[in-house]
Structure formats: C-alpha cells, structure tokens
C-alpha cells in the first residue's frame, strides 16, 4: 500500500507524536549530563532536578525580598495584560471589521487606513507608547492592541465579505434591516472566523507582551526571564519558557473548544487544526 493511504492507529498516532518530544528531552539530558560532569557549576544546561527545584521555588516559596509567590504573580499579571489587550483588539475587530466588511462607504473610508496602519511594525511604536502612556500597564496593553487589532480588523472584514451574497440578498427579501442583518446574519457568520483570528493573533500578542515586559516592567513572565538572564539562570528561564508555551497552548485549545461548542454548524465539514 502507498504510504499516503496508510493511516496510523490511535495508539501509534500518539506514539509518533511523542517521539520528537522524547527525542529533544533525551538529547538535552545527555548534553546536560556531559557538561555537568566536566563542570558541576555549569549554568548553561541545568539538570532537570535543578530546573524542578527552581520552578518549585518560584511557584511555592515566597520571595525572600517581597514575600510574593513569583510564578503566580508573574502569570497573573501577564495574563491580565494579554487578556485586556486581546479583549480591546477583539472589540475593535468586531465593530470596525464588521462595518468595513458590510458597508461600502465605511470600507472606502477606513480600509486603506487600517491596511496602512497594519504595516507599521508594532514594536517600533513601543517607544512612542512608553512616552505617551508612561511605563505602566497602559503602554503594554496598547502595544498588544496596536500589534494585533489591525490584522484582526482586516481578517474580520474579509470574513464578512466572503459571506455569500445570496444570503444577504435572501435576508433583504425577508425584510431585514441593516441592523438586523448585522445581528442575525453577519455577526454569527463571522464569529467563528473571529475566534480563529484571535487564535492566530495570540502568537504575536505573546511576543509584544514579553517584549514590553522585558523593556519596562516590575512583574510578568517576560520581565522575570529577562531579569534572571543577568545571572545566566537557565534553571529559571527554561521552566518559564515551557510554562509560557503551556499557557499559550491552553488558551489556543480553549478557544477551539469554545468555537466548536458555540458554532457547531461551522465545524460540521471536516476537521480543523
């Protein structure tokens, strides 16, 4: 049988998926052991034990100076910034994106502006945001919004424009007003696409969050890893990176589950990643 027609069973699929992960862990362990054998004080490739104890310290032992449980404090602050930023970006995408997609005059007025704005590399306006909003929370949230909203607006508008014209005309012949079409046709047809664009926008959103925290902050996951970098504390950095990855993964899956639950009609045809 050709290889394209051979499908892994559930068990072998799981096993195949695990192989790359296991391989990386094994390679790391070998390399780490070798370096530590030569120099027990080596900081570059810490052992799993020292990473585990560092993670335990960050999570479950109060900080000696401030008395905070740093991992949870960092996680909470970072997720708060990310959440507020994405919420504002989503709201903007909904309002502006729907109007651009549905109403030709708004499209003519705003689409070129949004397209231009979305081409500004967001990180370049970070200094401006720090000057305007100060070094507090607002600048970090504003960076996430500025970095993700334009693309989300464009993809939402695009999603509106791909609604078959036939459906919109059908709604008109059923006596719908523009507002009713927005609420009963355009919005529900666009929401699954919006959730998709949130999932995609979360990737750059994390980048902007970590960057902003690295540059000016006193808490947050990004602040922490850039802080301990000064001491070459790989035993803290690596678990933090894994933790951030895990958070990003959970958020992504959560949004997928929400989309499947809330919009079953959208997921009827075929699997989605």
């Amino acid at each position: 049988m050709r290889i394209i027609n051979r499908r892994p069973s559930r068990f072998s699929g799981f096993f195949l998926a695990a192989i790359p992960f296991i391989a990386v862990v094994v390679v790391y362990m070998i390399a780490s052991r070798q370096r530590l054998a030569e120099n027990p004080a080596d900081k570059l490739l810490p052992s799993f034990q020292s990473m585990g104890s560092a993670f335990w310290r960050m999570a479950f032992e109060p900080d000696r100076r401030s008395g905070d449980y740093l991992l949870w404090l960092d996680t909470l602050d970072s997720l708060w910034r990310l959440g507020i930023g994405m919420a504002i970006a989503t709201a903007l995408a909904l309002v502006i994106g729907l109007l651009i997609g549905f109403i030709p005059h708004v499209r003519s007025a705003l689409a070129p502006f949004v397209a231009t704005f979305s081409l500004i590399p967001p990180i370049t306006i970070l200094p401006i945001l720090f000057i305007v909003f100060g070094l507090g929370e607002a600048a970090k949230v504003a960076l996430i919004v500025a970095g993700t909203a334009p693309v989300m607006i464009r993809s939402t508008a695009q999603a509106v424009m791909t609604i078959p014209r036939e459906m919109i005309i059908k709604a008109e012949t059923l006596g719908a007003s523009v507002w009713q079409m927005l609420t009963r046709l355009v919005l529900p047809q666009t929401l699954p696409g919006l959730i998709n664009s949130i999932r995609l926008a979360l990737v750059p959103a994390w980048i902007f969050l970590i960057s902003a925290e690295a540059i000016a902050s006193t808490t947050g996951l990004g602040y922490r890893i850039f802080l301990v970098r000064r001491y070459l504390a790989m035993d803290v950095i690596l678990p933090y990176v894994i933790w951030i990855t895990l958070l990003a993964f959970i958020l992504d899956r959560l949004l997928l589950v929400i989309s499947r639950r809330a919009f079953p009609w959208f997921h009827l045809n075929g699997e989605s990643l």
């Binding site: 078959p164 036939e166 459906m167 059908k170 529900p188 047809q189 919009f263 009609w265 959208f266």
Partner: peptide
Amino acid sequence: FQRYSVFSH
C-alpha cells in the same frame, strides 16, 4: 438561488 439560499448558521 441554486446554492447558499438558506442560512448555514
């Protein structure tokens, strides 16, 4: 229409 006459959602 031939297609897309009803609301898929």
